[in-house]
Nucleic acid binder design. Structure first.
Lengths: 195, 195
DNA sequence: GGCAGTTGCCTAAAAGGTTTAGGCATGTGC
DNA sequence: GCACATGCCTAAACCTTTTAGGCAACTGCC
């Protein structure tokens, strides 16, 4: 009776990502996706293993998109210029695609995480830091710190943390980038631990 | 037939927080809670309005606990000492109570958020920054940055981001605190806006 | 101690999400 | 034009959420 719709794991993943941006990643549901394709729920289970599988795929898609954007933004830039461009990619992506960004935080199992674009992010961060010339153990600390600031800021902003108070969040963002640049150019040397 | 168990909104909230720490905040469910009290599901609905209400209460509990710990840690400290103590409170709480920490990120509606302990956190951060003597608009930027770093770091650590790679996460954490201290003592002045 | 009223937990039921098993029809390859 | 594989279907079991209404057990008062 019904013509075939042409479901694919790919199409489901993309539609899931759009759904996430509309209603929130936590509200992404196999049933709702079936509704959107005007298809019975069970039909989706030939294409995705289960609900968690679907969310994992959305997460990987978002991670890859983000890494692609970052790689593009980084091309031909260095130093503070690169740092700012990289930072903006995160913030802009999260604002354009809140659901996908939330998907980014989905807890993947370790093997999947290792195979994901997450490692590309770390490599790109390292690339930026080469412009600041930190000694090795410190570079790793700095990588982690940058990741924390970007992720933390964007999460809090998305959660509405900075919304109804002055100054504007965009202003803070650019000051944060300034501060990080200053910090990296003046990275403190490890001292003895304080009591 | 069955003796009364003595349910309370309070007890449900606390049990919900423990459940969150065991199975994850997202997996906290009215049904599971009923099971734990050996009671029918419907019985809980006299004490909490619905599932969201339960999660909101858990979130507020966690926020309050965290603020209490922070206030205690801050007593009698200033400068870098205060900064490090404050930071450790966040990290330790998240490691001891991952589910409660996740609850902390639960999106509250704006009025609830304003009435929550979230504002105490912001005030305490401001108190720490008074030791660094930043001019006013910059202090707000710094408050937001500190919140971002702490939240971002702890989230990534909880998600397993730093788990299987050297150096140890605890080492990075103390270097991050060093770096933040150095940054605050050397906060850059605003330059011309970026293009 | 017994009674009235409140409260606490119950049964019942509807609605929606997840997941599996098995079937028919619509496409593709020969 | 036939055989086969594939895609979407029906059916069904199970779980969570939420509401409505009922009975029993506590409370306090005489």
């Amino acid at each position: 009776m019904a013509a075939r719709v042409g479901l694919t794991t790919e199409r489901l993943t993309r539609a899931g990502a759009e759904l996430a941006d509309e209603v929130g990643f936590a509200q992404v549901t196999v049933s709702e996706l079936a509704r959107r394709f005007d298809v019975k729920v069970a039909s989706l289970y030939s294409h995705v293993k289960n609900s968690r599988d679907l969310k994992t795929r959305i997460s990987l898609l978002a991670l890859a998109e983000l890494a692609d954007r970052a790689a593009e933004a980084l091309a031909g830039r260095a130093g503070k210029d690169a740092l700012a461009a990289f930072a903006d990619v995160y913030r802009d992506y999260a604002r354009e695609h809140p659901g996908r960004y939330a998907a980014t935080q989905f807890r993947l199992d370790p093997e999947t995480a290792l195979a994901s674009a997450g490692v590309r992010h770390a490599q790109m961060t390292r690339a930026i830091l080469r412009g600041y010339d930190l000694p090795e153990p410190e570079e790793t600390h700095a990588v982690r710190m940058l990741g924390s600031v970007f992720h933390g800021y964007v999460s809090l902003e998305l959660a509405g943390g900075f919304s109804h108070s002055a100054p504007d969040s965009g202003e803070t963002w650019s000051r944060v980038v300034d501060a990080l640049d200053a910090l990296l150019r003046n990275w403190p040397t490890p001292g003895p631990p304080r009591p």
